[in-house]
Design a protein around this nucleic acid. Structure first.
Length: 226
DNA sequence: AACCAGGAATGTA
DNA sequence: TACATTCATGGT
């Protein structure tokens, strides 16, 4: 997985799919809530859960902090894992209130590395969610490694599949400029590509990024999975 | 009617 | 460190 290949992949994806506009001009707190709710569920279900939070007047750190876990859980039920996710939302609300005066702006007032480390101490926020918050809510450079990313890199033959999260993240960050817009766009494009080709319909012959693939790797992977 | 979706925490060895 | 289990709704 050379740096040139990582940069080429972005160019091909962007040419094929164009800008994805993930979480464009959204409220940072809402982005954080969405990042937690979408864990291991579709964005469609997470979005419905966010709507229900809003209708219940629970789309703020204060409201979530004051509400019972049962009430929060009932609102976010469509997102799945709703009891544990309600605990995660309340954990973040409590963290924000106790450590940052309930202001997301205070939380974000530090370097990307420090913010990342701090987010990882919050119950319910792991590496992927922390990186999503950094890129899409805080506007700080980082890179999200998710199931789509691993699947694509595996099908390209660039990784074996068992590489630690931090290794893959490090390779992308080393290869790319510290441009939050680009980093966020890149991950969104990987997901966009995955939805179109890699999962439901692994039609690699029509895949817009097939040209960057080592000869026959995509075809071989696809056959091997049957 | 299995299978999976923009994971993370917890427990065990 | 590495691997298994649990959490759970909604769409194919």
């Amino acid at each position: 997985m050379s740096e040139n290949r990582i940069r080429d992949l972005f160019d091909h994806l962007y040419l094929a799919f164009g800008p994805q506009d993930w979480w464009p001009a959204s409220d940072p707190f809402e982005v954080i809530v969405g990042a937690i709710l979408t864990q291991r569920t579709t964005w469609q279900n997470a979005e419905q859960a966010i709507r229900r939070l809003r209708e219940s007047g629970l789309l703020s750190a204060k409201a979530i902090g004051d509400a019972s876990v049962e009430r929060v859980a009932e609102a976010i039920r469509p997102a799945g894992f709703y009891i544990s996710k309600a605990g995660k939302l309340k954990a973040f609300a409590a963290f924000l209130d106790e450590r940052h005066d309930g202001e997301v702006g205070r939380l974000f007032a530090r370097s990307a590395d420090e913010l990342r480390e701090e987010l990882l101490t919050v119950f319910g926020i792991g590496e992927e969610t922390a990186d999503a918050i950094l890129v899409y809510a805080a506007g700080k450079p980082s890179f999200v490694i998710d199931a789509y990313t691993r699947r694509l890199l595996s099908r390209l033959g660039w990784i074996a599949g068992k590489e630690p999260y931090r290794d893959l993240r490090g390779e992308f960050l080393d290869a790319l400029p510290s441009d939050v817009g680009l980093l966020g766009e890149y991950h969104a494009l990987i997901v966009r590509h995955g939805k179109a080709h890699c999962r439901s319909n692994p039609d690699c012959d029509r895949c817009p990024v097939r040209s960057i693939c080592a000869a026959g790797v995509l075809r071989g992977q696809r056959e091997a999975e049957r």
